[in-house]
Nucleic acid binder design. Structure first.
Lengths: 121, 121, 121, 121
DNA sequence: GTGGTCTAGACCACA
DNA sequence: GTGGTCTAGACCACT
């Protein structure tokens, strides 16, 4: 059974887990997603929770359902996710991150060191 | 009346607003904070909400109360906040930030450019 | 409906009532606590009061919440409570108790007599 | 300026400070207490707070006022305080203390050791 | 005036 | 159903 972190709602965590697969190219367009039952078993959550995740992803046009068959990754899925996330990252995450660095006195050098160490792995 | 963003709970936003004042040195140790009623008027929220904020800050030993008198910034307040936040930033924020950069294909150069532009301001 | 003494705030009394259950081993790690509404009915207090109790126990890492599910006893709960209480007892309660004995002229023998009588019960 | 601990209301702390003097025999019956102004200066509190302390002690017949002269320790003061405190100590403090010892697994031997060490000082 | 506790009731997010 | 946040208003203890 997959492990989940705390804090975030479960259905958001599963949504992000799915988006990771798409972003990394592991699930490309047309790929069939695991069934609701399958995924609910894997995460140990109520099927309703998975249904809710799929519903949300459908609303965002990341996936689409084919009645009686299952859910599939949409054609534009990867681009949509990337665009949305990049924009948010540049407009909100980066400025906030830099503001925090300044406030806490974290130097750019320290960040670059962290970055390079992560890259090597 | 002070403006607040959405997303986060109000009492957390006010907590962070207070911590900013302390981190920036505007409210140093021994400084008396605005009274519960005063601050509730300033933010346009219920006094209970401010009381909750102060209660939490008290439990974190950032401030302390004197009954019938008011709330005061604790001696170790700034150090406590900085220590807590730096630890969280290094252990959680930075790794997550770098993971997102990689996932979204944001280059280190772009980040450094953002950083330098922010610095100049 | 459970009975409570006066003097102490209600939410503290309920907090201690919960800690007793944990200390006595009746509620071990992973045990699900009564829901906020359930306990508020049992003690005849407002749900907010129970929520406050649970919130404080959460901040002390004695319990933790799972949204939409409930509150659970944390793994380290018993040890945490015991450590905190023992420390307080040794550093504050015992010295104060002995000071009072001396001040009031209560002899050690009398205390030991009380102690042994209690033990037999 | 005298130091005060936290937690307890100031006027209670001052009340207990006065009672200590009487219990220890330092202020025997007929002894004139410090004036309100004097004591308020010594403790660094508002004169109202001292007035309230004296008022309470007067109500409990521990002291009495002579108009235009000051406050004096009553004849039965020491006995009154001792009786009240001893009763409370035997009926409430000791049983609670022993219950806590059992709950926290503090042995009688440890208590006696604490007791003897305090005695030597 | 200050903080501390509590009730009553609302609305939201989550499973 | 669960917890989480917030408002409105009350009463108390303390300075």
């Amino acid at each position: 059974m997959k492990q989940m972190s705390d804090n975030k709602p479960v259905f958001i965590q599963i949504k992000e887990w799915i988006e990771q697969h798409i972003l990394r190219g592991e699930w490309s367009k047309g790929h069939q997603l695991p069934s609701v039952r399958e995924l609910s078993a894997e995460f140990g959550v109520n099927p309703n929770t998975i249904a809710r995740t799929y519903e949300r992803l459908t609303m965002e046009q990341t996936i689409h359902s084919v009645r009686g068959v299952g859910y599939f990754v949409s054609d534009q899925a990867k681009e949509l996710i990337e665009t949305r996330r990049r924009e948010e990252f540049r407009k909100e995450t980066i400025p906030q991150f830099i503001a925090d660095m300044n406030l806490l006195g974290i130097e750019l050098e320290e960040f670059i060191k962290h970055y390079n160490e992560t890259e090597k792995q």
